[in-house]
């Protein structure tokens, strides 16, 4: 019983948090081999080799893997799949793009966003925006799954595990990368941050989102947003927290000017401590908040930033 795990490599760098949480989730299933693929992937492989529970690292360094296009990366995973019973990746947007393709090529049903592992074929996953948790038993010979990283703790340091080169697979050459638009930020990454401050429609404008950012910076927190805030252009799309955005489970989540729609709760209700600031005392967000403060965010948030 062996596991092949697609490491999260972006621009040659390993996302250690996502990869190591996925490793921790699946290491009970068997020996874990991590695949690092990219235009440059050797540094990422070195990092992956240091994750506790990793027994081997495969590196596929080739220009065709440079932008994590689904078709070449899926072809590579399929070419390596023979030796493994489980093919796994952290549930990032890259993996959600690639892994169902891998599953279909192997005639297996993808098991998306796994939040619990019962045994080699039985898994738990949230459905209906997290309002129900399903237990599913896979009948497929090979199980292809993505792991919800917010549900697992990161593995510690170990190793170093041996690193092996693998040959690239045939590239179906169906798509081409054109451009990336990635905002550089000194703030912690949303899905791995210990604290998150999110703003919603109540913030009212892009300019006023600075109020949220200032509180986040004071707390050393990542910044998140509701869908309404993103749709209105107050915040970039990669800040969206929720059913169809990022799923976070920090020690502290502060929701400001967010009403608490089920789709938003789906992305943050497993946070350890939840604070809600909202001027409407009936807002549903208060039903799940540990500490609720009814008030106008434009006075409350600056005061909070100052007093912390």
């Amino acid at each position: 019983m062996a596991v092949l795990l697609l490491g999260e490599v972006t621009g040659g760098e390993l996302s250690v948090d996502a990869t190591s949480k996925a490793v921790a989730a699946v290491k009970a299933l068997g020996e874990v081999t991590v695949l690092c693929a990219g235009a440059s992937a050797r540094d990422a492989a070195q990092e992956a080799a240091k994750i506790d529970g990793v027994s081997k690292v495969l590196v596929a360094e080739d220009a065709r893997y440079g932008h994590r296009l689904a078709e070449p990366t899926a072809a590579l995973l399929v070419s390596l799949a023979g030796d493994y019973e489980h093919i796994v990746a952290p549930a990032t947007t890259d993996a959600k793009n690639i892994m169902p393709r891998v599953a279909a090529l192997l005639d297996a049903m993808i098991i998306s966003d796994v939040s619990g592992i019962i045994d080699a074929e039985t898994f738990e996953r949230p459905v209906y925006a997290g309002n129900a948790i399903q237990t599913v038993k896979s009948k497929d010979a090979k199980k292809v799954l993505t792991v919800r990283t917010a549900s697992f703790d990161a593995a510690g340091e170990g190793g170093p595990a041996p690193i092996e080169e693998v040959a690239p697979a045939d590239d179906p050459a169906l798509s081409k990368w054109v451009a990336d638009e990635v905002a550089e930020s000194d703030r912690p990454e949303l899905t791995s941050a210990g604290r998150v401050v999110s703003g919603g429609r109540g913030v009212g404008s892009k300019e006023d989102f600075a109020i949220i950012e200032k509180l986040a910076d004071k707390l050393g927190a990542a910044v998140g947003a509701s869908r309404a805030a993103v749709d209105s252009g107050y915040a970039p799309n990669d800040w969206q927290v929720g059913q169809t955005g990022k799923v976070v489970a920090p020690e502290l989540y502060v929701a400001v000017g967010i009403s608490g729609a089920i789709q938003h709760l789906a992305g943050m209700k497993d946070s350890k401590v939840i604070v809600a600031i909202n001027k409407d005392e009936e807002a549903p967000i208060f039903q799940i908040a540990d500490y609720g403060l009814v008030g106008d965010l434009f006075s409350v948030v600056p005061e909070l930033t100052e007093k912390l």
Binding site: T122, N131, T135, F286, Q287, I288
Partner: peptide, 18 residues
């Protein structure tokens, strides 16, 4: 291919305070 063997409610949160 996936047999659903159970469906449960997620863990609830204990009520907080204002």
């Amino acid at each position: 291919r996936l047999e659903i063997t159970g469906t449960r409610e997620p863990e609830g949160r204990k009520a907080g305070i204002k």
